Amino acid sequence: MNAIADKFPSRRIPDPEEFIEIFYMNKSRTNIYTAFENLDFHWSLDEVRKVEDAYEQDLPVDLIADAIGRHADEVGMLIMSRVNEGRLKPRATGAYGWSLPFDPAKNDWLTEGQKNAIVRILKSGASRADIAQAVGIPTRLVDYLWRKRKGTDA
């Protein structure tokens, strides 16, 4: 038998509150703390596809979050959920994708000075592949920074 039939052998249909109580509120608590209450873990299918595409291109979580206008923890939880469901494969390099220069004081992958230098070099006519190689970052990141700077990042 299924779970509903086991809980309601009389075959009566439970009211919504009773259903929620039986199937979702199965732990008794007096004092509760809700983790990440300030974050939004609801996603449209379009947003899920964008995150999955960016993840599969090895973009780091913070850049994905920035590109879609969401908090990095929300993106990270979505990725963990999709990996857990088997929809995405774990990356050997982890959620952040690749090793980049990290400025812990700014909690950012690249400092503003580094980002501005990349954009300046791009404007000088150097190829994105040359810049990526010189700076030691993937070409995709150079492309991302260029699109973001020009305001064309989706």
Rank of each mutant, 00 (worst) to 15 (best):
A3Q: 13
D6L: 12
F8T: 08
P9N: 02
R11D: 15
R11P: 03
R11Y: 13
R12E: 12
P16T: 05
P16C: 05
E18K: 04
I20W: 14
I20N: 12
M25G: 07
K27W: 09
K27Y: 03
R29T: 05
R29Y: 07
T30P: 13
F36G: 08
E37R: 05
E37A: 07
L39Y: 05
F41N: 03
S44F: 09
S44P: 02
L45D: 15
D46I: 11
D46C: 06
E47F: 00
E47K: 01
E47H: 01
R49H: 13
R49E: 10
D53F: 10
Y55C: 03
Y55S: 04
E56F: 01
E56H: 04
E56Y: 02
E56S: 14
Q57D: 09
D58G: 15
L59M: 11
V61W: 00
V61C: 03
D62T: 15
I64Y: 02
I64W: 01
I64P: 01
D66M: 07
A67C: 06
H71G: 00
A72T: 13
E74V: 04
V75A: 00
V75H: 06
G76L: 03
L78E: 02
I79Y: 00
I79K: 00
I79V: 02
M80L: 13
S81G: 14
S81T: 06
N84R: 15
N84L: 12
N84F: 11
N84W: 11
E85N: 12
K89Q: 15
A92F: 12
T93P: 01
G97H: 04
D103W: 14
K106M: 12
N107A: 15
D108C: 11
E112T: 13
A117W: 12
V119Q: 10
L122S: 15
S124H: 02
G125K: 08
A126R: 14
S127R: 08
R128H: 06
A129K: 14
A132Y: 01
A132D: 02
Q133G: 05
A134K: 03
A134S: 05
G136A: 00
I137N: 00
I137Y: 02
R140D: 13
V142I: 14
D143F: 03
Y144H: 10
L145S: 05
L145K: 07
W146L: 05
R147Q: 14
K148Q: 07
K148A: 03
R149E: 04
R149Y: 09
K150R: 07
K150M: 08
T152C: 14
D153G: 08
A154C: 06
